[in-house]
Amino acid sequence: MSGAATFAWGALWGAVSLTIVGALTTVLVLVERKISGRIQMRVGPMHTGPHGLLQTVADIVKLLFKEDVRPARADAMAFRLGPLLTAVPAVLSFAVIPFGAPLIMRDLNVGVLYFLAVPGVTAVGLLLAGWASYDNYSFLGGLRSSAQFISYEIPRTLAVVGVVMLAGSLRVSAVLEAQRTVPFLVLEPLGFVLYLVTTLAEVNRTPFDIPEAESELVAGYHTEYSGFRWALFFLAEYGALFAASAFATVLFLGGGNGPLLPAFVWFLVKTLAIVFLTMWIRWTLPRFRSDQLMRLAWKVFLPLSLVNLVLAGLAMQVVAG
């Protein structure tokens, strides 16, 4: 393929990924509201469309036509850049997600690392959004969010090192190939648990949603945002949630590997099961206090992930014989 064609091809897949994230957000928000309703013995949204199915569609239309309010003393450049830098990395990470074994947009040599590195830019977006708003809640929310984000990034990344050791490659397709017989969940249960729990913290979900704890910080870093810019934060949250769940599937559950059904279906089933798990946890558990949260990251998860590394080394030697 020529350079221009590859570029256009990439742009096309970028647009597709963005559409996927938009559609996913629409569906997942509705599903989450329904699930939370069930868990709290309510019915959830019921009025817009049959059984409230069109509720989130209506929400999106509303958000698109809503006024874009910017605080008078806000830093205009940073205020605009903040939501973009939060949402874009989440979508960028879709480039290496294998939706079914052959259906991967780009099988990079360093795919696994790319997936972990790109969302790291989100911390910049959170800080910018919080800082730009010129609001006490936003400022504190931005600082807390990014501090939590970077704290949990370390054990999360370390948990993946174990998988890479076992797979012997940073290529996503090779990681899947290595799990053709046994998924890494069996060899590395601790790594899976670590990855899952720290992922909850990375995407700001209960019990780790301190950054947006309504009772103390209103809406955290996005207190001052409205309309489509606010929607971008939502897009980022659900996009990142889906991407992280998809990668949990790839790293520990063998991706699209499975009997009978096509790989694409297996992949979606596994990923959505993890998404459902996070929602279940969100509406069941209370929230941690801010200092408990940081203590947990550094004094429990980080040592545990070092232990996991040692276990992975042993598992690797056993597998290699």
């Binding site: 990079l108 040599n109 360093v110 690392l113 790319y114 972990l116 590195a117 790109v118 790291g120 830019v121 911390a123 910049v124 800080l127 910018l128 800082w131 400022f139 600082l143 990014s146 970077i150 990034e153 940073l170």
Partner: peptide, 25 residues
Amino acid sequence: ADFVSVVQIFVYVGGVVVLMLFALM
């Protein structure tokens, strides 16, 4: 140098820039 490139994003953009923003704020 694909590995170096990803390390650059990881450490610099996701690390040093965040650190500098922290210091500034």
